[in-house]
Design a protein around this nucleic acid. Structure first.
Lengths: 243, 243
DNA sequence: CATCGTCATTGGACCTACCAATCTACACCA
DNA sequence: TGGTGTAGATTGGTAGGTCCAATGACGATG
C-alpha cells in the first residue's frame, strides 16, 4: 500500500480533539463579537449539555482559554467563566516561556527592549509633532513622591508605568503591549535579584530624560535612557541570584 | 469579623488549584534544565500516581502546558507528552488573541512591524559592520525560482523567511521571535484576503532592497521596504474578505 | 518475505459522585 | 427593628473509574 505521497489523496477525517473544537467555537464567538470582555459563559455543566460533550472536555477547553488569558474563572454561586480583556500578560507569558525554554536569552531581551524604546523616540522625533508629556510628567512626580516617602513598594509599578508611557507616545497599541510585555518579563527577574536602587540617581535620570524630551532633544533623551538602562542591567548581573 | 485589611495578616492556605501546582512543578523542572526539549514525560496515569492527584488534574495541567506551546502530545504505544523547543508561535498566538479581543488593531500591528524592521536597519547602519547578506541573497534567489516556476505555494513561507532574515541581521533572538510573530500573525490574515501578488513587482522590490543593503545605503533600503509593505497593506484593505 | 492480526501501551472521552467556595434568603434573637 | 447567623442553591474543583481509539511491536500465516 502506497505510503502517503507528497499530496495525500485523503486527509484525516477527524484530526482535532474534541476540546479543541470547543475552544474554536468559543474563540469564534469572541472574534464575532458575540462574546465581549466581562461576559459570563454558561456553567460548565450547562455548556457540556449544550455542546453534547462531557464536562471534562469543557473543562479542558476552558483551561486552554484561561491559560491564553482570555478567561478567568470564579467559584461559587455567581461564579463561572468570565471573558477577560486582553493585556500584555499574554505576550509576557510567551516571552517568559521562551526564556525558560532557552530559545532566547535575557540579554537579548534587554537589548531588544532598549532598541525598541530608542525606536519610539526616533519615531516621535521624525514625526515632528511635539509629544504630549503629561502622563510622563505625572509619573515622574509620583516617583519623586514615592521616593520621598520611602515607599519602595510603589516603585516597581511606577517604573513599569514609566516605560509604558514612553511606548504610548506613539499611540500604537501593538507597540505598547510588546514593550509592556518586555518590561514585565524583565521586572519579574529584577524583583528576584535587586534589593533597591538608589532613588536619587533614578530620579535624576528620569528628570534629565524628561527635560531633554521637553526641549525636543530626542537623541539626548535616548542617550540618557540608554545609560540608565545600562546601569540597571549591569546590576542584574552583578548581584547574585536570591533563588 | 474584620474583612481583609490592606496587608492581610494571613494569606490563604491554598490559593492555587491543584492542576496549577502540577504546572508549576513541571515548569520548574524545565527551568532547572531537568527536562529538555525532546524529552518525554511519564504517562498520565503514572504521573497522576506519582503526584498523588487524579488523572483529570494531570490532564488539565498538560493542557495548560500544551496550550503554552511547551508540550506536544502523541497518542498510541510510544506516545506521551514531549517537551517542545520554543518558537515564535508562542508570541504570535498571544498577538492573535489580542487582536481577537480588540485590544490592538491590525493597523497598529502592521505599523509596529514596519517600525521594527526599520529599527533593525537603523541598528545595522549604526553598528558600522557590514552585515552578512548570504541568507537574504539565497532567499531572494529562491523567491525568483519559485516565481519563475509559478510555485505560489512556496511564496508565503519564503516571504516569512525574508523578514526573518532581516530580523536575524541583528543577531538578537528576542527581536527575531517578535518580528517572526508579527509576520506570522499578519500572514494569517493575508492568506485569507489576498489571492496572489504580482511576482515581478515583488522580485524587483526585493532586489532593489538587497542592492541598497549591499551598497550600504540603509536609508534607501528602509524606504524600499517601507514602500513595498505599504503596497501590501493597501491590498489588505482593498480586497474584500473571503470569510 | 511480505502481509496481516493480535496485543500492550497510552492519550481521549465519558460518567458519577463528592468537596469547597460563594451568594441568597430567611429565620432567629437581641 | 436590625443585625446575625444558618441552610440551601449554585458552580467550579477533584477524585477515580470505564471504555474507546490510535499507535507501534511482535509474532503468526500465507
Amino acid at each position: 500500500m502506497a505510503k502517503a505521497a507528497d499530496d495525500a489523496l485523503f486527509e484525516p477525517v477527524r484530526s482535532d480533539r474534541t476540546f479543541e473544537i470547543v475552544v474554536q467555537r468559543i474563540r469564534a464567538k469572541l472574534a464575532a463579537g458575540e462574546l465581549r470582555p466581562g461576559d459570563k459563559l454558561p456553567p460548565e455543566r450547562e455548556l457540556a449539555k449544550q455542546l453534547d460533550v462531557s464536562r471534562n472536555v469543557v473543562r479542558e477547553a476552558l483551561r486552554s482559554l484561561e491559560n491564553a488569558g482570555m478567561l478567568k474563572t470564579r467559584k461559587g454561586a455567581h461564579g463561572g467563566a468570565f471573558i477577560e480583556k486582553g493585556s500584555a500578560a499574554l505576550i509576557s507569558a510567551a516571552l517568559n516561556d521562551l526564556v525558560i525554554l532557552n530559545a532566547i536569552s535575557l540579554d537579548d531581551l534587554l537589548d531588544a527592549r532598549l532598541m525598541m524604546l530608542g525606536m519610539v523616540l526616533d519615531h516621535i522625533a521624525q514625526s515632528g509633532r511635539a509629544p504630549d508629556l503629561g502622563a510622563l510628567e505625572a509619573n515622574v512626580a509620583a516617583t519623586a513622591a514615592a521616593i520621598a516617602k520611602g515607599d519602595s513598594a510603589q516603585r516597581v509599578p511606577l517604573a513599569r508605568a514609566f516605560y509604558h508611557e514612553i511606548a504610548a507616545l506613539t499611540g500604537n497599541r501593538a507597540l505598547e503591549f510588546t514593550i509592556d510585555a518586555q518590561t514585565e518579563m524583565i521586572q519579574s527577574y529584577l524583583r528576584l535579584r535587586v534589593t533597591d536602587m538608589d532613588g536619587e540617581n533614578l530620579l535624576r535620570s528620569r528628570r534629565d530624560f524628561l527635560h531633554h524630551l521637553r526641549a525636543g532633544r530626542f537623541d539626548a533623551a535616548k542617550a540618557e535612557l540608554s545609560a540608565h538602562l545600562e546601569r540597571v542591567h549591569q546590576r542584574l548581573w552583578s548581584v547574585p541570584s536570591v533563588n
